[in-house]
Amino acid sequence: MTAIIKKRKHLLRLTILLIIGLILFMLNIALGSVNIPLKEVVKGLLGYETELESWSYIIQRSRLPQAITAILAGAGLAVGGLQMQALFRNPLADPAILGVSSGAGLGVAMVLMMGSFGGFALSALGWIGHLTVTTAAFAGAMAILFLVLLLANRLRDNAMLLIAGIMVGYAASALVGVLKFYSMKEDVHAFVIWGLGSFSSVSWTRMEVFFPVVMVGLIGSLLLIKPLNLMVLGDNYASNLGVNIRMSRFLILACTGLLTAVITAFCGPIAFLGLAVPHLTRGLFKTSNQQVLVPAVMVAGAILALFSNLIARLPGFDGALPINAVTSMIGAPVVISVILNNRKLMAGG
């Protein structure tokens, strides 16, 4: 009986989150540096002609894909963070812990800055350069992911794997540092800009790649709910309850890795979302059940990404704030409160 009441509570909370998400989605489309009346926003969104042609262009070509990107990236990073925290049984794990985002950074650094050895700045190439950056980021991220998966097959211990992942990340970052040192100013600048993160660089044509790959990751994580639920108990209990540890670990890593790779490639390394959202969601739903947490974390991640995007583009800020600055400002206090809460629990128990 109590289980049913709880289920209703969870459903209610999830519905509220969905409504908040919808409102934020609408705000993302309605608000921006160009002021468009609400009526015209709806018109533009539904494909009718707007008073000014540029308005429909802004809504259709800029704000709509940006909002969808934010939703997908937020949901993907948040669920990746949840999976890593469950798999490693570590509250401070996030999708970047595997070193995948550092791999993306290395890929980007290579195309942006290797150019300096040939004597020209790649950043001068415009949108062709942009496409190359994304491809390079994805390639770098996938290369690191394969390395981590290979290590996962060799290492039985999760703690060892965690350390190996962090080390791989450090190595990739170190290589980026070396590249930076030898690069031209413009290329380093372009790399820094990429590192600030943005949801605005996914056009409709790029969405054709971004959307399906993120969906594969999201659906995959929904399919992994049962083993993820048991992995929280530790490897021994999980395997005693029928989980094929090696297989499940591989699939969970692959799922998070794919999400992180594609999102980092298209949006840059988005900090803190993956770490903070699972904690926020757990605090909100007060449950450890991944059947509730996985969908809830996806919605909460989308909300936080939409909210960050909204703040980043608030009128008054010239252009757009870097997404990373906003997510970190929200994420840091959350992480601190988690540490404080943990300390309280330790003292109490």
Binding site: T2, N229, L233, G234, N236, Y237, R282
Partner: peptide, 19 residues
């Protein structure tokens, strides 16, 4: 090993035994 999972209730834990 001491099992420390935040927010997990007795019911949640025992229910996992049905996996």
């Amino acid at each position: 090993e001491r099992l420390m999972v935040p927010n997990m209730t007795v019911y949640d834990l025992v229910a996992l035994g049905r996996s």
